[in-house]
Design a protein around this nucleic acid. Structure first.
Length: 487
RNA sequence: GGCCUCGUGGCGGAGUGGCUACGCAGCGGACUGCAAAUCCGUGUACUCCGGUUCGAAUCCGGACGAGGCCUCCA
């Protein structure tokens, strides 16, 4: 088996990976979306990156020996606010919230399916893990009770707070000491906090406008971080192999998860490897609503807001994987165009209908901390060995690797076809049959060595953005002409 | 203010203490009536200043620049 090396944010080093408990397989948890609105392209990065890791792990350890959990945050103040705003009082507020989160989750699934991502093994919803009746079923309330019992949390004015000073190792992931953080002085001071760094595990809810659950501390709802401790604990165990997410989650989210899980379970570590993907910029600028460059996955797939056209999931996927996951990535129209051309070339040469099976060189590249740029270079090397398009071992090997990496030839081809149609529609008064007739007329003119006429037809089509390509049939030597939309 | 990351050729983007990826664009050639497409070939790099070393773009220190986190955020 190839050696898998992964970078661990906690120790800041690349280490050899091995499952903590081979009998339980590889266990991975990745922070998923808060379902209140369309996911943006920055949200797509961890989804794609950890999908590639999931595929790699399944290949290395067997599909049945990898458990991938990606949570759905469906209790959150942004959700509450959004649901309350659109609430018409025709149904209970909780039903309104559920409708909003169901709808957003369906959108999210459609988006990530289009991006070629496999569904995780489990996609737990936070609301299903607040309070579970069976005594043995781990949930948020039970973790909070354990934290209180162990002296790591306290109740104050209906809130339960994590007692940060009670955990000496707090701050290890983010590499910052308590003194430094307090010196930052931008922490939220609240009367119910003993220490400014203490964070909320449970808070009271207003039954009129907020969702809530009955608990030993009154009607309320969980704080942001506790859901991940509960769901990872319930589905993966007290310690598991890999915990992933965006780098901006390192502090405070993951730091607080570690504090909760380790203090509740009495463990040294929560995850053996902490993996964080880098930040995404759009055309060199931070993506933000105020700059007007905020872009959702859906807008990229189904509108012309970015670059004046829509894009297919495969292009977004390749564009994302061209940069190593820990590097910052600049999301540009030029990058999407380049990815489009690369896929066009690969699919032109790769043999169709191949099973998903990676080459050793691809596995080796991915096994080096998910080096996807190196992986892509291996694909280019393979591509350069292909002598006859779609035929021979190299063409089959390229096809197998593309399938393994989650690229979908049919989806890409359908999109290309759609773009052609759109261009022809925009031209108006010309369709594929017309083009076929013009091509035939040009071939006839060429045969008659009437080059003025044949060039005139070619120029006429070129002016409309249709490029002609001549080729000789290798068998008959007959001249054939194909066309494509030149953009 | 504190902490962290990064700075590679025209562009994108890996990697490495000595053999200097890869892709796009450019350039040259083949093919073509001429093109396009395709195929073959090809130049250019490691922000700056010190230090360690036989040797550094790669390690160390500093400067400058970019970004992130410290508050919701992938």
């Amino acid at each position: 088996m190839a050696e898998l090396k992964l970078y661990d944010t906690l120790t800041r080093e690349k280490r050899l990976f091995a499952p903590l408990d081979p009998a339980r397989g590889v266990r991975m948890y990745v922070c998923g979306p808060t379902v209140y609105d369309f996911a943006h392209i920055g949200n797509a990065r961890p989804v794609i990156v950890f999908d590639v890791l999931f595929r790699l792990l399944r290949h290395l350890y067997g599909a049945d020996h990898v458990t991938y959990v990606r949570n759905i945050t469906d209790v959150d103040d942004k959700i509450n606010k959004r649901a309350f705003e659109r609430w018409t009082h025709e149904r209970p507020l909780t039903a309104e919230i559920r409708a909003l989160t169901d709808q957003t989750l369906a959108q999210f699934h459609a988006d990530v399916d289009a991006l070629g991502c496999l569904r995780p093994t489990h996609e737990p919803r936070a609301t299903d893990f607040v309070c579970r009746p069976e005594p043995s079923a781990l949930d948020m309330v039970k973790i909070i009770e354990r934290l209180i019992a162990r002296g790591h949390a306290y109740v104050e004015q209906g809130h339960v707070l994590f007692d940060v000073p009670s955990m000496p190792a707090y701050g290890r992931l983010a590499r910052r000491s308590l003194d430094e953080m307090v010196a930052g002085a931008r922490v939220d001071v609240a009367p119910y906090k003993r220490d400014p760094m203490d964070f909320v595990l449970w808070k009271p809810s207003d039954p009129e406008k907020e969702p809530g659950w009955e608990s030993p501390w009154g009607f309320g709802r969980p704080g942001w971080h506790i859901e991940c401790s509960a769901m990872s604990g319930a589905l993966l165990g007290e310690m598991f192999d890999i915990h992933g997410g965006g780098i901006d989650l390192v502090f405070p989210h993951h730091e607080n998860e570690i504090a909760q899980s380790c203090c509740a379970f009495g463990t040294e570590r929560m995850a053996n490897f902490w993996m964080h993907n880098g930040f995404l910029m759009v055309e060199g600028e931070k993506m933000s609503k105020s700059l007007g460059n905020f872009i959702t996955i859906r807008e990229l797939l189904a509108s012309d807001r970015f670059g004046g056209q829509n894009w297919v999931g495969d292009v977004l996927r390749l564009a994302m994987l061209k940069t190593h996951y820990r590097q910052p990535i600049d999301w540009t129209v030029e990058g999407l165009n380049e990815s489009t051309n690369t896929l066009d070339d690969w699919f032109r040469l790769a043999a169709p209908d191949q099973p998903a099976e990676p080459s050793p060189a691809v596995i080796a590249a991915l096994s080096d901390d998910l080096n996807t740029p190196k992986t892509i270079a291996e694909l280019h090397a393979l591509r350069n060995h292909i002598r006859v398009p779609q035929q021979g071992q190299d063409a089959e090997e390229l096809g197998r690797n593309l399938a393994f990496l989650g690229f979908d030839r049919a989806q890409f081809a359908a999109w290309q076809k759609g773009r052609e149609h759109a261009v022809l529609q925009a031209l108006g008064g010309i369709d594929e049959a017309d083009i076929g007739r013009l091509i035939a007329a040009r071939l006839a003119a060429r045969k008659a060595r009437n080059f003025a006429e044949s060039d005139r037809i070619r120029d006429e089509l070129a002016a409309k953005g249709i490029a002609l390509m001549d080729a000789k049939d290798p068998a008959t030597g007959e001249l054939t002409t194909t066309w494509k939309v030149a953009r």
